[in-house]
Computed example of a mutant assay.
Amino acid sequence: MTEPLLEVNHLKKYFPIQGGIMQRTVGHVRAVDDITFTLNKGEALGLVGESGCGKSTTGRTILRLLEKTEGTVKFKGTDLHELSRKELRAMRPKMQLVFQDPYSSLNPRINVGTAIGEALVDHGLVSKHEIRDRVKEILSICGLAPYHIDRYPHEFSGGQRQRIGIARALIMNPEFIVADEPVSALDVSIQAQIINLLSDLQEQKNLTYLFISHDLSVVEHLCNRIGVMYLGSMVEMAPREELFARPLHPYTKALLSAIPVPDPTRKSERIVLQGDIPSPANPPSGCKFHTRCPFAKEICKQQVPKYEEMASNHFVACHFAGEF
């Protein structure tokens, strides 16, 4: 059996809360709270959930843009959080990030050619006279024209800027890409173009994606498996078809019910969750979802449900999984 490209085991990322005159640590925001999963080469895993559930923090901690609190992140068998700065820098080209906001992630003072090619120069991967040819090649792959190389970010539309962001990640010839809400700021028609582009690139280059989104209908088109997060924890993970056909967690059911149905003659039953998401600085006891769950019982308030495999590759954390 081949080793997974990425192994995440019991990953935690807590941010300290400081207070008082001495600015002592008085608590922690549990942004990522004990997450475990693996990702195989060429696979696309979708990570979904409401805003503030810890999706983006998970992605950034995996890439070691944030330091972990606990747990391990292994990329091709190497623990990323145990590497020295020099060793991590050598590993960086193989792991790239596509940002949510393509405009703020681009320097308005430098042209697109420089923005895309600067990492190649920084890592010494090509000589200076080869850079323009490499940048033009990657622009064409991402659906942009070679003459765009000398233009500046403000001269492009939102969709074009996102293509530039993808080109900047791809030029390093990575194996693994974390795409952090890459289409959330785009029009629906442009979203489809970017999703199709990512899908084509995955096929051509055998890329592995961690695709972060709050929209299940978006990840449905790109991802092989989908993980659902709530308040820093993974509550369900399953192959795409299995999750859509047989969700076992009430939170997953509520998210699926919110997907718009394009047929006006067909009525879907919307599950509206009551109340607000609790604070990750003070999560509820027992199951974190029990304060909003319409099926919660006494055990849910007292005991944390085990995250266990209920069917083949279908994991869920719920005391009454599939019983409602």
Rank of each mutant, 00 (worst) to 15 (best):
E220S: 09
I138H: 00
A167E: 04
V183A: 05
N107D: 15
P108D: 13
H129D: 15
L106A: 12
Q204A: 07
G165D: 05
I177P: 03
G117A: 14
K136Y: 11
N206T: 08
L197H: 01
Y230K: 07
R132T: 12
I138F: 08
N111C: 12
Y147R: 05
H214W: 09
D122S: 13
L125P: 03
S233L: 10
L106H: 00
V188P: 00
L207F: 05
L231E: 03
V183R: 02
N173R: 14
M237I: 12
G124R: 11
V112M: 15
H148Y: 11
M229Y: 01
S157M: 15
K128F: 15
C223K: 02
T114A: 14
R151T: 11
P108W: 15
Y230H: 08
K136S: 05
F176K: 05
V178L: 02
V135L: 08
D133I: 14
L120W: 08
L210F: 06
D200L: 10
N196M: 07
A238H: 00
L231C: 03
G124Q: 12
H123Q: 02
T114V: 15
A169T: 07
Q204M: 10
I166P: 03
Q202V: 13
H148D: 08
R225D: 00
A185F: 14
N173E: 14
I149D: 00
V121R: 09
V178P: 04
P174M: 13
D187G: 07
K128A: 15
D133A: 15
G165Q: 04
L207E: 02
Q162A: 11
V219G: 05
L216N: 03
V228N: 04
S127C: 12
I131S: 02
D200T: 10
N206A: 12
S217T: 11
K205Q: 09
Q160I: 14
L198R: 04
A115V: 14
A238R: 07
S213Y: 06
A192M: 09
L222W: 07
I226P: 02
R134V: 14
S189L: 13
E236D: 01
G113S: 10
A115F: 13
L216E: 07
S140K: 11
V126K: 09
I177C: 01
S213G: 03
E137R: 06
S104F: 14
M229T: 08
P182I: 13
V135S: 06
E220F: 08
M172I: 13
L186V: 12
N224Q: 07
I149R: 00
P108A: 15
V121H: 03
G158C: 13
K128H: 14
R163Y: 10
V183K: 01
A185R: 00
L144Q: 04
Q162K: 06
Y152L: 06
G117K: 11
D215T: 09
R109Q: 15
M237L: 11
L231H: 00
L216R: 01
F176I: 11
K136E: 12
R132W: 13
I149C: 04
E181Y: 04
V218N: 01
H154A: 12
R161K: 09
L125C: 10
